[in-house]
Design a protein around this nucleic acid. Structure first.
Length: 263
DNA sequence: ATTGTGGCCTGCCCGC
DNA sequence: TGCGGGCAGGCCACAA
């Protein structure tokens, strides 16, 4: 599913449209427009506008329109981006790899007839006008150790939930979070605020490594833990059986032996 | 403020 | 072979 690594790819793809003028906006799925936006509002904002820049905060893709408001694109779990017929991601874990015209939820058509298309079978993504960027925390790809420490401080809920709280750290999804915790040998269920300075340092270094390495490999589903994300699987590191439980409302796979064991 | 829960959405997989 | 239940998770509304 699109986590920060996938949306980073979408951002680079969308950057092709900078400087293009939007001739037409298509909103075939009214439900896909969020936070009070409707077809008329989106059209008045975007039609005739030139794309001034493309940014990303966490999993939110931002399209800045020159002298107009910004469009915010969220991809949910199965959203894919196409620009000029090129897919930002070929396949998505848990998503269908099929491409169906009826799954197109949002389109920008430019003066030169090129198009930017959001494709989302399950409709969990959406488009909004002028998203409130202050609701998002520090971007995970540039997260500093100090920002991580501040994000965890005082947290009494599970560590995993804090890492996935987009208002504190923007971009971490379920797969990246499980991979990072597993590599750092930290329990997803321990209280976020209970980590020692040493553990915070280790988690920070691990997250950086995971984001870099999985980014190079091709996405959030390419982690070392991925094959073990199934019931009854063995820990790829120590061979113990993986525990599956729900934490932070998400299915969580982790190895209690690796956390408890003396490395 | 913080934390936890349920619901949304729907294609796909598995078992019968 | 067809059918139906369960599953996936990003995000939000809501409750305590």
């Amino acid at each position: 599913m699109p986590e920060i690594l996938e949306v980073e790819r979408y951002e680079r793809l969308a950057a092709r449209t900078v400087g293009r003028r939007i001739a037409r906006v298509d909103t075939p799925d009214a439900w896909y427009l969020k936070r009070g936006a409707d077809a008329g509002a989106v059209q008045s904002v975007a039609t005739g506008a030139t794309v001034g820049g493309v940014r990303r905060i966490g999993k939110l893709l931002l399209i800045d329109l020159r002298d107009r408001m910004t469009l915010g694109l969220r991809f949910g779990m199965t959203g894919r981006l196409f620009v000029d017929g090129i897919a930002g991601i070929d396949e998505l874990e848990y998503g269908s790899s099929r491409v169906e015209p009826e799954w197109e939820r949002f389109r920008l058509e430019f003066d030169d007839a090129s198009r930017l298309v959001m494709h989302d079978p399950r409709r969990l993504g959406g488009v909004e006008i002028a998203p409130d960027e202050s609701r998002l925390g520090a971007d995970a790809l540039t997260l500093t150790r100090a920002e991580l420490a501040a994000s965890l401080r005082g947290g009494r809920g599970p560590l995993k939930a804090r890492l996935m709280d987009q208002s504190r750290i923007a971009g971490m999804g379920n797969l990246l979070t499980d991979e990072s915790l597993w590599r750092a040998r930290l329990s997803p269920t321990s209280a976020a605020g209970d980590l020692s300075d040493q553990e915070i340092t280790r988690l920070h270094a691990t997250m950086r490594q995971v984001l870099h390495e999985l980014g190079e490999r091709g996405g959030s589903h390419t982690g070392d833990l991925q094959l073990a994300r199934t019931r009854g699987a063995a820990c790829p590191r120590c061979g113990s059986s993986m525990l599956r439980q729900t934490t932070g409302g998400r299915s969580t796979y982790w190895c209690t032996a690796c956390v408890d064991g003396a490395s």
